[in-house]
Design a protein around this nucleic acid. Sequence first.
DNA 1: ATGGATGAATTGGTCAGGCCACTTGGCCAA
DNA 2: TTGGCCAAGTGGCCTGACCAATTCATCCAT
Lengths: 250, 250
Amino acid sequence: MFSAVESRRLYRQVADQIRSMIATGELAVGQRLPPERELAEKLAVSRPTIREALIVLEVEGLVHIRMGSGIYVARKHTVQPAQPEREPFEGPFELLQARSIIECAIAEEAAQRATSSHIAVLDENLQQMASVVNDTDAALEIDRAFHTAIAGIVGNAALIRFTGEIYDQRMTPYFEKLASHFEGPDSWSRAMEEHRAIRDAIAANDPAAAKQAMRTHLDRSQKRFSESFGEELFGEDEGGRAAARRNAKI
Amino acid sequence: MFSAVESRRLYRQVADQIRSMIATGELAVGQRLPPERELAEKLAVSRPTIREALIVLEVEGLVHIRMGSGIYVARKHTVQPAQPEREPFEGPFELLQARSIIECAIAEEAAQRATSSHIAVLDENLQQMASVVNDTDAALEIDRAFHTAIAGIVGNAALIRFTGEIYDQRMTPYFEKLASHFEGPDSWSRAMEEHRAIRDAIAANDPAAAKQAMRTHLDRSQKRFSESFGEELFGEDEGGRAAARRNAKI
DNA sequence: ATGGATGAATTGGTCAGGCCACTTGGCCAA
DNA sequence: TTGGCCAAGTGGCCTGACCAATTCATCCAT
């Protein structure tokens, strides 16, 4: 019937096997793997198959292949399953708290460096936002642009990238559904006013005020978020729980 | 000599070539690529090389390989052109500046929340560092752990993850080579002393001092890096570095 | 002895050719 | 028309070999 399992290709199986060895720590970071020929013999497959599997792992960043030298387990600290109870899930509150800490610092820094051309970018963004408060999709884009634009004032590409990446992480399919319940013309208008306050503080080259305005903005975002459905769906503070566990661990 | 970069492997070049054909639309979405044997003939390489290149593209999600049928351009790449010239390669100085802004804010926050158990974690880390100043690989691990531990004091999983991810981004093969020239027992000892100053400020629940200590630490890291940076190897041609970049990207 | 050059062993990179399993589409028979 | 069947096309995998880069122990000159 539904044999269901598409017969996985051999090199995929080999890649999975090596991957799990790395995940469990059986192969330590920096350690050299056995030569391709030896791996082929041990796993009873041909060398081309081993090579294909290793190329998969290299593209994934798990191993580092050095010609003539060997294959080494790369430093990759994505998700360490060291935690018995898995909690790879960060709630919206936790993300907003992280954004608050990081983006406040960025706003503070931006206020010290902003020039008139930077402010012009923010003003244009505010205008755009005013025209799309009824279109949540468009508003999200512009909201994102506002936050990355502030990072852009600092003039550091890495910072811009981080800001964008953090922002994008709220967009899990899960939260997207939830967010659609509270994002509307009203909430976007209020967000825009908070954006304006941030813009003004940065334009005034007032770091402390910029930091405070950004904090207010993100705090209120969280409040808007939690008021709408946080209570009905999560009875408790999700972020706090995960946080407590983390503290004990690290 | 310092070839600086691994000479690009053939299957990588083939993958790049096909990738660019997809990017430019020369190969339309959904279109079937020529058979492996034909590609091998046209590109004047062997079929295993073609296969390896195609596996790279498959892992990247650009093509979809269907056994017995053919190789098809995946739909996914439609979202890709949003960032056509993605070369998010940021230099070590840019990354360190970003870390400075972000981690200073985290240290500030951590100083407000640290308890004795948090400090115990930092102390243990310092002890570990003292015992491995001669082992750069181990020292890197512990250095990383110190910075994520500070994020851990805040009790926010997202923050811990970001801190780790930013840290890991210096570990491209390119920087690794450069860093190996300046990381030694001496530099690790000095880093450890700076860590201790951060620990003390956090233990004293002094946010301003913690922020300052973290900034000093990262500034000096940058200084250590840049000093040996200039002396050692900077004579590489730009083309080679760009190639290394592209390689390291994945 | 010390330090640099050298060559053999190791290891990844590539090639050639072949066989097998799966997919596909058309042919043929019911 | 419908159903199964078959053969060509295609990817999956293997064997065996040679090339190129790296590594390391050895040897020679200082």
